[in-house]
């Protein structure tokens, strides 16, 4: 589905991602964990065309999409739920969802998908005429995910969905991530909350200052002493 090889990304002169290899297969839920500033968000931005690629290649569904702009990738089924949600605060929930379906022209399908999103997040249906800016952080996260689903993605990139949320809300958000994955959407999840991310994922990558330091089955990583020491707050 997605193959990154020797991918390098930089902000001006600062190298943020130093040649990483990541593979996400069809139907998988893969997580990318690591500390603040490790380059996780940068990686996602590079994949979806929001940041120019310095070196290396991105192959998506067998096609080299390195350097493709974001708006084109969305049309090819690659959707991003940006860090900090990025919902349109002045628009209602309904309007936000409509915006998610911007690239689609099949009205009936869009209407059906709106109902699908409401079924997934009943909370959003209750408040559908409310502006997104008045929602709580957790509700905004749900809306951001719902909005991304509206574009009928084949690969969903989630950037820190748990950030700034109350523990109960985090639990809920992760439940919906699993639900979305069950619907057959391939997911690449970036998280600081390594334990939760590894618990729900099939495979995981650990990133440290711009490089992948560990990779493997999520369950194996959960029991890896190095991971436990560095990210799960346990003594080695």
């Amino acid at each position: 589905m997605l193959v990154l090889s020797r991918l390098e990304l930089a902000y001006g002169g600062i190298q943020a991602v130093k040649g990483i290899d990541i593979v996400v297969d069809q139907g998988e839920l893969v997580c990318l964990v690591g500390a603040n500033g490790a380059g996780k968000t940068t990686t996602l931005k590079g994949i979806c065309g929001l940041l120019p690629v310095k070196a290396g290649t991105i192959v998506y569904r067998g096609e080299n999409v390195t350097g493709s702009p974001a708006f084109r990738l969305v049309r090819q089924g690659l959707a991003l739920v940006p860090e900090g949600r990025g919902v349109f605060g002045g628009l209602t929930i309904e309007e936000n969802l409509a915006m998610g379906a911007y690239i689609r022209t099949d009205r009936a399908g869009v209407a059906a998908d709106v109902e699908r999103v409401y079924a997934l997040f009943p909370r959003l249906k209750e408040r559908r005429r409310q502006t997104a800016g008045t929602l709580s952080g957790g509700e905004q996260q749900m809306l951001a995910m719902g909005r991304a689903i509206m574009s009928r993605p084949k690969l969903l990139l989630l950037d820190e969905p748990s950030m700034g949320l109350a523990p109960l809300m985090v639990q809920k958000v992760f439940e919906t991530i699993i639900a979305v994955a069950r619907e057959g959407v391939t997911i690449l999840l970036v998280e600081q909350n390594a334990r939760l991310a590894l618990e729900v994922s099939h495979r995981g990558y650990v990133m440290e200052s711009g490089e992948i330091t560990l990779a493997g089955e999520a369950r194996a990583l959960l029991h890896d002493p190095k991971v436990r020491a560095a990210y799960l707050g346990e003594a080695a």
Binding site: C48, L50, P82, G86, G100, I103
Partner: peptide
């Protein structure tokens, strides 16, 4: 409203 989000919408 939000340019980055707009780009992410396609």
């Amino acid at each position: 409203e939000d340019e980055v989000a707009a780009r992410a919408m396609g």
